[in-house]
């Protein structure tokens, strides 16, 4: 099981956290075209390599944070940042 480095709680089992998916900027809801909005809702880059993604420390400090993970090796790259971009729709 992956160890996820929460900036507050330290490395925790991934089951302690909620995966928030790829970091993804929210378009302006008043100007977004349907294509832009649906890209925000449904389309992900899904790279084999470095990816900035969100985690929620659900069983710990309850902070959302974002961090880069290499999806091919599961290596995390410092530093974790406060969650600044929302993941997908709930």
């Amino acid at each position: 099981m992956l160890l996820v480095p929460c900036p507050n709680c330290g490395p925790r089992n991934s089951t302690d956290l909620r995966y928030g998916g790829e970091s993804h900027a929210r378009p302006d809801p008043n100007t977004a075209s349907p294509a832009e909005w649906r890209a925000y809702l449904y389309l992900r880059d899904n790279p084999a390599g470095w990816l900035r993604e969100n985690w929620y420390c659900a069983s710990g400090c309850r902070r959302w944070f974002s961090i880069e993970r290499n999806t091919a090796t599961n290596e995390f790259r410092d530093p974790p940042l406060p969650g600044d971009k929302r993941g997908g729709a709930a």
Binding site: R18, G20, R26, N54, Y56, A58, R62, R63, W64, P82, G83, D84, K85, R86, G87, A90
Partner: peptide, 10 residues
């Protein structure tokens, strides 16, 4: 979690 997500990230 939904509330926290909006408050913390947006």
């Amino acid at each position: 979690e939904w509330v926290e997500n909006w408050l913390q990230t947006e």
